[in-house]
Amino acid sequence: MSKWRIMPYVIVRRAGFPINWLESLRFTETLACVKNVLEIEKRLDEQRLAIVRLIEHLVVREKNGQDRRHLLSTMSKIRKGLAKRKTLQCPAIPVEEEGYDQLGREVAAWNDLLQQAAEQQRAGRECAESEMKEKRARLRQLLHSPRLREALWSMNPRFDEAVTRYLENPRGERTSDDKRFERRLITYLQRLCAKNETNSFFGPIDYAKPNPEQQAPVVYEWAVPFVRERRVFCSYWAAETLLEKICSEPGATPFYGRGVTRCTAA
């Protein structure tokens, strides 16, 4: 049975626009706050589980001992507070007793984590609001690039017209229409900056031989001038429409084409 092998040569082709255009639209500070919140949420889940297990142990001990109902009621309220992610209040707990002293520390740790989560969420909202203004301004700046506008026009002329209207009518408040349109803009940028979109600028194309010992990354730089040659190709639907038009002319030579009825000369 033959074994698979990697070819010794690869074809290298870069995208039409720099990837750092996308990177410049990243919500870096907001993302850091989100990661912090998620980490605290994870710790809260662990803390909740630790408190629940401790309460289960204390409940069994109370029922087998003095059966102090006020403590059972307090621990029941603590469990409900844990489920609702609320700050816990437990003044009736005898923290000087063994077991309950640990419960007091665990409850204090829970409340501290809740406060940290609230602070990080507040910081995240502030960062998101600040970065949203910054990134929207950056997006508009990118849209003033003639090369980018040409690429958008070649991909979707109607969308390029919408970009013109978007730039000519800046609004202070970000409406739902703005949100949808900006999300669509990002998808186009993702295609142009992170993919080999052939319906736009792309290249250069070259061949390479992998070197396992090379540590430094390969860097491509644009040559000057940026555009040395332009080529225009007729798409299938345009060729088919042209063929239909030719076939409709009296005296035309017979043509055969996909999806086109046979033409008969007059």
Rank of each mutant, 00 (worst) to 15 (best):
C90K: 01
N64Q: 13
Q120N: 11
I78G: 03
Q115N: 11
M75F: 05
K63I: 10
L88R: 05
E96P: 00
G81H: 04
I78F: 01
E96M: 04
Q66L: 11
S76C: 11
Q116D: 13
P91Y: 12
G81E: 06
P91L: 10
R69T: 03
R105Q: 13
C90L: 02
R79W: 04
L113N: 09
R68H: 09
T74K: 03
Q116V: 05
V95Q: 09
R105A: 07
A108G: 05
E97V: 01
Q66F: 10
S73R: 12
C90W: 05
P91I: 09
C90G: 03
A83N: 02
L88N: 08
A108T: 04
G99C: 04
L114S: 08
D101V: 01
T74D: 12
Q102L: 07
T74G: 04
C90N: 02
M75A: 06
A109R: 13
A117I: 02
Q120R: 11
I78Q: 03
P94G: 10
L114T: 04
P94W: 10
P94E: 09
A92D: 15
V95F: 05
R85M: 09
G65A: 14
R69F: 06
R105Y: 05
L103K: 02
D112T: 10
N64H: 13
G65W: 13
Q115L: 15
Q120D: 06
L103R: 00
A83C: 00
K86S: 12
L88W: 06
P91Q: 09
A117D: 10
E119L: 15
K84S: 14
